[in-house]
Structures are given as structure tokens and as C-alpha cells.
């Protein structure tokens, strides 16, 4: 009759998985006979789950906060690197520069297609002059460097891996989102071809378009949940839709998100113009 009183100190440790196997076995013997203690255990377990959910669920991180932490971490990284350099006594030894340069060349080298004359030195410069922090930025997959990378890809032009729109669907598994190349016909631009580019450890599809006067436009389609490009851009509202806009190296980049799919337009045009173009092109 007093069994419940005797085992009651075991209820919580049992739910928490803290009982010795022998204690747990004894307690389970009691549980089999006692509906009330069964309910205690179930309620205890449900409470645990609810508490866990309450502290794991609501966690909306504002873009401003994310940016603040990112900046703090970058500053800390920079500080560490400076301390490291000071410790070495030399600005940068060759033992460091060479592997870094090799890595920088690797990072810059993928899928490059230099068919157009477009300002080849804007971003690349000479790999040997690449400072340690620039290399770190390239090696790091942070959003800003990804943006730079996308603009760099646009400037260089990518070797088209496909030119038929029918091919596009087959690439969806690699990007992980539906691939619908926006039509820029209303702007007088026509589809030239597309390719896959690495973006934050994933793939993004890059669609190239040609327009009048030899102008080129690139639209990147990517998984917006995995690649929050918007966090490095400024938000504007165009036709009641948020557009994320910025300028890098004289090129504008404008991104919209639709149902978790990101569309980022990189082009040599005014940022207002590119914001409107991408909003009107993606529906």
C-alpha cells in the first residue's frame, strides 16, 4: 500500500534516465501495477518535452543581431591573426604565403571562362599580394565573401555547362530547390546558358543572359534558407515586395526570395534598375 510513497523519489530520476539499471527495474515493477505512477511518469516526460520545445522553438534571429555577431567574430579573428603575425615578427613568411597563394588560386580558379574582356583585375589581383585576411575571407564561407564571389563570377562570365532550358530541371537535386530561370524577355534579354557554382558549401545555378549593347546579366538561383545573401544586403520595397540590394565592385546585385528560393541578379546597371528587373522577372 505504501509502495507509491517508497518509490516516489524515483519518478523524476527515472524520467531523467538517472536511475541505476537495478533501481530502474524495481521501479518498473511498481509501474506495471500502478496507473497513478504511470501517469506521473508520462506527465513528467511530457513536461520535459514541453520545456525543451519552449526553449528550442522560438529563436528568431534578427538580421541585425546575426550581423553584429558575425562582425564581432570577424574582428576577433582579425585580432588573433594580428597577434599571430606579431608573434612571428615578420609580416608574413614565405612558408605561409605560398600555400595561401595556392589556396587563393584554387578558390578563384573554378569554372572560369574568360571569353569577355571584362575587367579581369577587379577582384583577383595577383594571388601573391593577397593578404592573410583576404585569404581568410575567401576561405571562409561568410555571406559577404559569397556575394563577392557571385559578382566575380558574373564579371568573368562562367563557362556554360548547358544551354538548353530543358536541362535545367535535371540540376534541381544539386541545388535543392525548384529551378525556374526567370524570363528577362520583357527587358530584351535572352537566355545564353547556365552553370553550377559552389555557394556556401552547396550549389547554386547561374543563368546568363545577353542584352543589347553586349550587356550581360547573371541570375543566381539558390536555396535561400541555406544561403542568407539578404543579410549582407540592404532591404528595399519594390511593388510591395522586399528586394535586397547592394553594389559590389561597381556591379549591382539585387535578390528576391520566393517560397524559400533565392534569385539574385548581378548586372552592370543601376541598383534601382536591377531591383525592379528582378522583382518583375520572378513570380
Amino acid at each position: 500500500m505504501s509502495a507509491c510513497r517508497e518509490v516516489s523519489p524515483y519518478v523524476e530520476p527515472y524520467v531523467d534516465g538517472e536511475l541505476e539499471p537495478s533501481q530502474a527495474a524495481l521501479f518498473e515493477q511498481h509501474l506495471q501495477r500502478c496507473g497513478v505512477c504511470q501517469e506521473r511518469v508520462k506527465l513528467g516526460a511530457a513536461l520535459r518535452v514541453s520545456v525543451r520545445r519552449s526553449a528550442r522553438g522560438a529563436s528568431d534571429v534578427s538580421a541585425a543581431f546575426e550581423e553584429r555577431v558575425r562582425a564581432a567574430l570577424a574582428a576577433e579573428r582579425e585580432r588573433c591573426e594580428q597577434a599571430e603575425r606579431a608573434k612571428r615578427g615578420t609580416p608574413l613568411g614565405w612558408g605561409t604565403v605560398l600555400p595561401l597563394a595556392a589556396a587563393a588560386a584554387l578558390v578563384l580558379g573554378f569554372g572560369v571562362w574568360r571569353n569577355t574582356v571584362n575587367k579581369p583585375t577587379v577582384l583577383g589581383a595577383s594571388p601573391l599580394s593577397t593578404s592573410i585576411s583576404e585569404s581568410a575571407a575567401l576561405a571562409s564561407a561568410d555571406v559577404e565573401s559569397q556575394l563577392e564571389q557571385l559578382v566575380a563570377n558574373h564579371i568573368r562570365g562562367l563557362a556554360p555547362q548547358f544551354t538548353q532550358l530543358a536541362m535545367v530541371r535535371q540540376l534541381e537535386p544539386e541545388v535543392g530547390v525548384p529551378l525556374r530561370p526567370p524570363s528577362l524577355q520583357h527587358y530584351g534579354a535572352h537566355f545564353l546558358g547556365g552553370s553550377m557554382v559552389p555557394l556556401r558549401g552547396r550549389q547554386a545555378a547561374a543563368f546568363s543572359y545577353g542584352a543589347a549593347e553586349g550587356r550581360r546579366l547573371t541570375v543566381y538561383v539558390y536555396d535561400a534558407k541555406k544561403v542568407p545573401l539578404r543579410t549582407a544586403l540592404e532591404v528595399r520595397v519594390v511593388q510591395n515586395a522586399p528586394v535586397y540590394v547592394g553594389t559590389r565592385h561597381g556591379y549591382s546585385i539585387a535578390a528576391v526570395e520566393r517560397r524559400g528560393v533565392g534569385y539574385a541578379l548581378a548586372a552592370d546597371m543601376d541598383d534601382r534598375e536591377s531591383a525592379e528587373l528582378i522583382v518583375r522577372s520572378v513570380h
Binding site: 526553449a55 522560438a58 529563436s59 546575426e66 570577424a74 571562409s140
Partner: peptide, 30 residues
Amino acid sequence: MALDLLANTASFEQEAMSHLGGLLAVGLRL
């Protein structure tokens, strides 16, 4: 070695950033 360190730092940073929401949820409760 130095390159490893940088690459590690970068991926460390990236992974840490991916836990921001989870940390904030617990931080809010605390």
C-alpha cells in the same frame, strides 16, 4: 599549418553561426 588554422577558423565560425538561433532560444529563457 597556417592555412589549416584559417580554414578551421572559417568553418568554426560558420558552424557557430548556425547555432545562433538555438543559443538565443536558451539565452532568452535564461
